[in-house]
Amino acid sequence: MVAHARADHPDEACGLIAGPEGTGEPRRHVPMTNAARSTTFYEFDAEEWKRVYDEMWEADEEVVVSYHSHTATEARPSRSDTAIASEMGLPQAHYVLVTTRDPEVAEVRSFRIADGEVAEEPIEVLGAPDAVQTYKFAHSPDSTVYDCH
């Protein structure tokens, strides 16, 4: 997710991680095309999204993680992220935000969004991430759970 966000910077990147329906297990990373090609907005490309959804439907998968990047602001859902996700979103998904505003440190945070409410959830890192750059995982604005260099 971070590599995709870095690659598409300064545009916002977006994508999903699919997993078997009902398990909550993220298994298959699918980077999506940001149809808006914008530094301030993202939207799954509609044609690509239909193809990916068809594959997920056939495999009894669902979206476990829906992620996108912010390129100049913090890694938390904006007002429009929250409004759109509440009205017509993915209620089962973890909404993961990556910010690429700092070229050295990518901040990654995870949220549930439903009915206009945003709830942050902790991220736990399993296994050793590739030491290609610094990742900072935070679960509240002022505390960092895990930091690796």
Partner: peptide, 11 residues
């Protein structure tokens, strides 16, 4: 017929 959320947002 398939109905899908657009999956979009902005800062």
């Amino acid at each position: 017929v398939t109905i899908l959320p657009a999956v979009a947002g902005g800062m």
